[in-house]
Simulated scan of single mutants.
Amino acid sequence: MNHHETFEKKTLYVVLLTAVTMVVEIIFGLTTRSMALLADGIHMGSHVLAIGLSWIAYVAVRRLSQSRQYSADTERILSLSGYTSGLMLLIFAVFILIEAVQRLFHPMDIHFNEAIVIAIIGLLINLVSAAILHHEHDHGDHNIRAAYIHVLADALTSIGAIAGLLAAKYFGWLFVDALAAIASSAVIIKWSIGLIKQSGQSLIGLKKETQN
């Protein structure tokens, strides 16, 4: 089994794990009327979409690699998927940044206990997903790297949320919650731009090779 097939299975496991978590959080968010839980479930949905894209790319590569006519384009598919995931991650990070800045100037009441539990559950799910997607960075595979960065970014967001919520709950520092989100967004934006640049360069390089 080559590393593409291995990565295909890994991304499928993470998609299923994230999808189950998303459904559970949305159901309990609706039944308990917890906006925090519902929002986190919808947030999980964005990662199901992004990591699902990575899995679809591996499926496409596996099928197209059986045909000599398309064998030269398989690596481009992975780079394109990584590039697209990078853009999705960047948009997601910018959205969080805007919301966090608004929350900084217009603080709102927070249901601390529920929010902290949700953040901890999200962190655990993302740590498991990161362990599944962990790989050596010697393949130049931007697709698996994109999926890995997605779960790391989500884990970072959860850590920031936990720290901010604890500070707000026990010290009354509501602004720390927004500051943690801003800091997390800045790091995620940096990661996403790096992924976009690297996968974009790979796409250009592959295109030049096919033209020669």
Rank of each mutant, 00 (worst) to 15 (best):
N2C: 05
N2I: 01
H3E: 14
H4Y: 12
T6V: 15
E8Y: 06
E8H: 06
E8W: 08
K10R: 15
K10Q: 14
T11D: 11
V15N: 00
A19L: 14
V20F: 15
T21S: 15
M22G: 03
V23A: 13
V24F: 15
I26A: 04
I27V: 14
G29P: 01
T31K: 04
T32V: 06
T32M: 07
R33L: 07
R33M: 07
S34A: 09
S34R: 09
M35G: 14
A36N: 08
L38V: 09
A39N: 11
G41P: 07
L53T: 10
S54K: 00
W55N: 06
A57K: 01
Y58P: 00
R63E: 15
L64E: 05
S67P: 02
T74S: 02
E75M: 01
E75P: 00
I77E: 05
I77G: 03
L78S: 14
L78T: 07
S79Q: 11
S79Y: 07
S81R: 01
L87A: 14
L89Y: 01
L90I: 04
I91T: 14
I91C: 13
V94Y: 14
V94A: 13
F95D: 12
L97Y: 08
L97E: 02
A100M: 05
L104S: 03
F105S: 09
H106P: 04
H106Y: 09
H106S: 12
P107T: 11
D109N: 10
H111Q: 14
H111D: 13
F112R: 12
A115G: 04
I116M: 10
V117M: 11
I118N: 02
I120W: 08
G122R: 01
G122T: 10
L123E: 03
L123D: 02
I125A: 05
N126C: 09
V128S: 02
V128R: 09
S129V: 08
A131I: 12
A131C: 05
L133V: 11
D138V: 15
N143P: 05
I144M: 10
R145N: 07
A147F: 07
Y148G: 02
T157L: 12
S158N: 11
I162S: 06
I162V: 12
A163G: 07
G164A: 04
L165K: 04
L165R: 03
L165G: 02
L166A: 03
A167S: 13
A167G: 04
A168I: 03
K169S: 06
Y170G: 03
Y170Q: 04
W173I: 05
L174H: 08
F175D: 13
V176I: 15
D177C: 07
A178K: 00
L179C: 12
L179T: 03
I182C: 06
A183E: 04
S184E: 05
V187Y: 05
S192G: 09
G194H: 11
G194K: 12
G194D: 10
L195S: 06
S199F: 10
G200N: 13
L203A: 08
I204A: 11
L206F: 13
K207E: 15
T210P: 01
N212W: 06
N212Y: 07
